[in-house]
Design a protein around this nucleic acid. Structure first.
Lengths: 255, 255
DNA sequence: CAACAAATGTGAGCAGTGCTCTTGACATGC
DNA sequence: GCATGTCAAGAGCACTGCTCACATTTGTTG
C-alpha cells in the first residue's frame, strides 16, 4: 500500500518533477516536429536528437510513437478548447450570434496558425493509429459542446426563430439519434434545430479544412477572411439566429 | 526530330505496351496498398514485392514515391469524377434538385467505399508532397465544376429563387473574387448565390469528411444516410433550390 | 556517510523504409 | 550480327520504430 503515484502529483519528489519536465519537453519538441514535418514525419529519433539524448532514452518517458501522437492530440485539443472558450466567454452570455461568430473565428485562427495540429485532429486519420477514446473524447468534444450550448441557450431565451427558411423534415431514424443526443446533453433545443446545428458544425469545419488543406486553388480566393465571415453569417441563418435586432429587443439576459 | 513519344501512344511497340501494362499494374497495386495502409504507409518496396520484382525495379516505371502518389491522385480524381458525372447525367438536365442530390450522394458513396483515396484527395496534405498542379487541377476540379454548372443552369432557367432566407451581404473584397470566378467560368449566376454555392461545396465535403474520418463518435449517429440526406436538403435551401414544384411548373427544359 | 535500489542514459542490433548506383542480362532496330 | 537501349538485380546509404543488455546517475535509507 504505497502512495498512489497519481495522487502524489502535487507534492512531488524532485525526480517526479524532472520527469514531468522531460515529458513536457518531449511534447514541446514533438509539436515543433509536427508543425515542420507533419504527423507522418513525426520521428521519435529526431525528438531524441533535439532533446540531446540517445534515441532509446525517450522510450523511458513515452511508450511509443503512437503514445506521443496521443499526447500531442490531447495537447492540441486542449489548446483549441482553451482558445475557443476564451473567445466565447469574452462575449456576454446573451450575445448568441456574437458567441457563435467568435467560436468559428477562434477555430479558424487556431487552424491557420497550427495547420499540422489541425490536420492531426480533423484531417485524415493516421493509418494504423487509433486514438484511445477514454483519453481523447473529453477534450475532443469541448468545441462542439460549446457550439450546441450556444444554440441551446439561444433557444431557451427564445432567440432561435423557429421558422427557418426551407422547412426540411427530419426523418424518424435521424430523430431517434437526435433525441438521444438531446437527452444525453440535457438540451432543450428541438430536433429540427439540432439537426441543422449538426450541419452547421460540419460546415464550419468543412470550410476551415478547405482553407487549411489548400482545397481552394492557390489564387481562387484572395478575400478569405471575408469568405469565412460570409459563411458564418449564412450558417447563422440556417440555424435560425439571423436577426441581430431580435436578440437585443427581446429580453435576452446580457449578464 | 524523332516521333514524340506521347504521340505514338496508339500504334505502340510491344515494349511500350508492356511498359504501360506494368505501370497500370503498379497503380493497381498501389491503390490496394493505399486502401490498406493509407497514404503515409504507401511503400514502393511493398508494391515491388507484390509485383514479384525487386524493389529498385519499380523505379524504371515510376520516378519516385511521390510520382506514384501523383498517379494515384489522378486515378482517384478520375474515378470520382466519372462516378459523379454518371450519377448527374442519369437525371434530366432540368432536374436541378435531383442532380445536386445525385452529385452529393455519388461523392459520399465513393468516399465511403474508398476512404483512403478520399483522404488522399480531401484530407490532410501529405507532408513534403506537393501535387503538380499542371497534372491534377483539371481532374481535381471536375466535381466542383459540375456543381456550379447545376447551380448556373438552374439560375438561367429561373429555378433559383433569388430570395433566400437570410439576406447576407457579400463584402466587396469577396465580390471581386467571385466576379473573376464568374468571368473565368462564364457563369450567369449572381455573386450572392455563387458565394452560397461555395459554402454548399465546402459543407458537402465537410459532412462527408466528418463521416469518413470518424469525427462523429462511433455511436452518435446510427442514421447516417438520413443525416446526410437531411444536410443536402438544407443545403439546397441555402442556395435557393428548395421548392421542387417550382421547377416542374415553370418552363424548365427537361430534355 | 555508505549502501542499496530505482530511475535513467547508452549503444548495439533487428527489421523496415526511400532511393541511388553499378553490374549483368536481354530484346529491339539497323 | 552487332550496337543500342531497356530492364532486373543486388549492394549500399541514411533513415525510421523499437528492444535489450549494460552502465551510470540519483534519491533514499540503514
Amino acid at each position: 500500500m504505497d502512495l498512489p503515484p497519481a495522487a502524489a502529483a502535487k507534492q512531488s519528489t524532485p525526480r517526479e518533477r524532472a520527469r514531468a519536465q522531460t515529458v513536457a519537453d518531449i511534447i514541446r519538441l514533438g509539436r515543433r516536429h509536427l508543425a515542420l514535418h507533419g504527423a507522418a514525419g513525426l520521428s521519435l529519433r529526431a525528438v531524441a536528437r533535439d532533446l540531446g539524448v540517445v534515441s532509446s532514452a525517450v522510450y523511458r518517458y513515452v511508450e511509443s510513437r503512437d503514445e506521443l501522437l496521443t499526447l500531442l492530440l490531447i495537447d492540441a485539443y486542449g489548446e483549441l478548447g482553451d482558445e475557443v472558450a476564451a473567445a466565447v466567454d469574452a462575449l456576454p452570455e446573451g450575445d448568441y450570434r456574437g458567441r457563435f461568430l467568435a467560436l468559428g473565428r477562434a477555430v479558424r485562427q487556431w487552424a491557420l496558425r497550427e495547420p499540422a495540429s489541425y490536420a492531426l485532429l480533423f484531417g485524415s486519420p493516421v493509418p494504423g493509429y487509433q486514438a484511445p477514446a477514454e483519453r481523447t473524447t473529453e477534450p475532443g468534444t469541448r468545441v462542439i459542446y460549446r457550439m450546441v450550448g450556444i444554440f441551446d441557450a439561444a433557444h431557451r431565451a427564445g432567440a432561435l426563430s423557429a421558422k427557418v427558411a426551407p422547412a426540411v423534415v427530419v426523418p424518424p431514424a435521424l430523430a431517434i439519434d437526435l433525441a438521444s443526443i438531446r437527452a444525453e446533453l440535457g438540451l432543450a433545443v428541438p430536433e429540427p434545430a439540432l439537426a441543422r446545428g449538426v450541419l452547421v458544425w460540419t460546415s464550419v469545419f468543412g470550410a476551415i479544412s478547405f482553407e487549411v488543406f489548400g482545397q481552394y486553388g492557390a489564387d481562387t480566393f484572395a478575400a478569405r477572411d471575408e469568405l469565412f465571415e460570409h459563411h458564418l453569417e449564412v450558417l447563422l441563418g440556417i440555424v435560425g439566429l439571423q436577426a441581430p435586432k431580435v436578440e437585443y429587443l427581446d429580453g435576452s439576459r446580457t449578464g
